[in-house]
Simulated scan of single mutants.
Amino acid sequence: MTALKRRGTFAYFLVLVTMLLVWPMGVILMWAYTPWSKSVKVAITICLTILTVLTVHSVCYFRIMPS
């Protein structure tokens, strides 16, 4: 395995981990450093944005709801 291939694998792993833990930074790294197609990048960005909006909405909804 060449050094470039190992470096690319580590970069993909780093992008995926940051997408799971700190998604805004992971999305920025994905757009900057992965050779994935634009449609894949847009789909991942939209999915993560929708998940974040739904999570924030549900947290706010249950916090405001009287108990």
Results as ranks from 00 to 15, higher is better:
20 L>R: 10
59 V>T: 13
45 T>K: 01
17 V>K: 11
14 L>E: 12
56 V>N: 07
50 I>A: 04
43 A>C: 06
23 W>A: 04
25 M>K: 12
40 V>C: 12
22 V>Q: 07
57 H>E: 15
43 A>D: 09
37 S>R: 09
52 T>Y: 03
8 G>T: 10
66 P>E: 09
39 S>N: 07
31 W>R: 09
15 V>G: 03
31 W>E: 04
46 I>A: 04
58 S>I: 14
32 A>F: 03
21 L>H: 09
57 H>D: 15
45 T>W: 03
53 V>S: 05
5 K>S: 10
57 H>P: 13
12 Y>M: 07
15 V>R: 12
22 V>W: 05
9 T>I: 12
23 W>G: 00
20 L>N: 00
11 A>D: 15
44 I>A: 05
66 P>S: 05
64 I>T: 14
54 L>R: 01
55 T>K: 06
39 S>D: 06
46 I>S: 09
27 V>I: 13
18 T>K: 02
39 S>H: 12
60 C>R: 15
66 P>L: 00
60 C>L: 15
50 I>Q: 00
42 V>K: 04
26 G>M: 09
59 V>Q: 13
31 W>G: 08
43 A>L: 11
16 L>Y: 02
42 V>I: 03
15 V>T: 04
28 I>D: 05
18 T>V: 02
18 T>L: 07
34 T>K: 05
40 V>G: 05
51 L>C: 10
52 T>A: 02
9 T>L: 08
8 G>N: 03
35 P>G: 00
14 L>T: 12
35 P>K: 07
50 I>R: 02
35 P>L: 00
60 C>I: 15
23 W>K: 02
22 V>M: 11
25 M>S: 08
18 T>P: 04
11 A>E: 14
43 A>I: 09
16 L>T: 04
46 I>Y: 02
15 V>S: 01
50 I>V: 11
20 L>S: 09
25 M>F: 02
57 H>S: 15
48 L>F: 05
4 L>W: 11
17 V>I: 12
4 L>M: 03
67 S>D: 13
13 F>D: 12
17 V>H: 11
34 T>Y: 02
44 I>R: 10
14 L>P: 10
33 Y>Q: 14
58 S>F: 15
35 P>T: 04
38 K>D: 03
33 Y>P: 12
59 V>I: 14
28 I>H: 03
31 W>Y: 10
62 F>R: 14
22 V>D: 07
66 P>F: 10
32 A>P: 08
39 S>P: 08
12 Y>C: 06
37 S>Q: 06
26 G>L: 03
29 L>E: 08
53 V>T: 10
2 T>Y: 07
41 K>I: 00
27 V>G: 11
39 S>R: 13
12 Y>H: 13
36 W>S: 11
